[in-house]
Amino acid sequence: MEILVNSIQKNSDDFNEKIDKYIKMSKKYAKINDNVIFNDMIAKAQSKTQKDALIAYDKVYLPKLEGYNVALDEKGKILDSYEFAKLFSGKNKISFFIGGAFGLSDDFKKSTDAVISLTKLTLSHKIAKLILFEQIFRALCINANHPYHK
Rank of each mutant, 00 (worst) to 15 (best):
residue 83 E to N: 11
residue 98 I to Q: 06
residue 63 P to H: 09
residue 80 D to P: 07
residue 60 V to T: 13
residue 119 T to K: 03
residue 134 E to G: 13
residue 71 A to T: 05
residue 65 L to D: 01
residue 126 K to T: 07
residue 94 I to Y: 02
residue 106 D to M: 00
residue 66 E to D: 14
residue 103 G to F: 04
residue 95 S to L: 10
residue 118 L to Q: 07
residue 66 E to Y: 12
residue 101 A to H: 07
residue 99 G to N: 02
residue 80 D to K: 04
residue 80 D to Q: 06
residue 62 L to G: 00
residue 77 K to G: 01
residue 69 N to E: 04
residue 85 A to Y: 05
residue 70 V to W: 05
residue 98 I to P: 14
residue 105 S to K: 02
residue 137 F to H: 15
residue 125 H to V: 09
residue 107 D to F: 10
residue 128 A to L: 07
residue 107 D to P: 00
residue 129 K to H: 13
residue 133 F to I: 11
residue 90 G to D: 03
residue 109 K to Q: 10
residue 70 V to N: 02
residue 115 V to E: 03
residue 125 H to C: 08
residue 64 K to F: 05
residue 68 Y to M: 10
residue 97 F to P: 02
residue 118 L to I: 10
residue 128 A to S: 15
residue 94 I to F: 12
residue 85 A to T: 02
residue 103 G to K: 05
residue 77 K to Q: 15
residue 138 R to T: 11
residue 74 E to Q: 06
residue 87 L to E: 10
residue 124 S to W: 00
residue 115 V to H: 01
residue 105 S to W: 01
residue 123 L to R: 03
residue 103 G to H: 06
residue 74 E to N: 09
residue 84 F to R: 12
residue 78 I to R: 06
residue 74 E to L: 14
residue 71 A to H: 06
residue 63 P to Q: 10
residue 67 G to S: 12
residue 91 K to T: 01
residue 108 F to G: 07
residue 77 K to W: 00
residue 88 F to G: 02
residue 97 F to L: 05
residue 102 F to H: 02
residue 120 K to E: 13
residue 60 V to G: 10
residue 126 K to R: 14
residue 138 R to W: 10
residue 96 F to R: 02
residue 68 Y to A: 09
residue 85 A to H: 02
residue 73 D to S: 13
residue 93 K to C: 15
residue 112 T to V: 15
residue 91 K to Q: 07
residue 121 L to S: 10
residue 99 G to F: 00
residue 63 P to C: 10
residue 64 K to D: 00
residue 117 S to R: 15
residue 105 S to D: 02
residue 136 I to T: 12
residue 131 I to A: 14
residue 126 K to D: 13
residue 93 K to H: 13
residue 114 A to V: 09
residue 87 L to Y: 08
residue 65 L to H: 06
residue 116 I to Y: 08
residue 73 D to I: 05
residue 97 F to Y: 06
residue 101 A to Q: 07
residue 130 L to E: 03
residue 97 F to C: 04
residue 71 A to S: 15
residue 125 H to G: 12
residue 104 L to N: 04
residue 84 F to W: 14
residue 135 Q to G: 07
residue 82 Y to K: 13
residue 122 T to F: 03
residue 137 F to W: 13
residue 65 L to T: 06
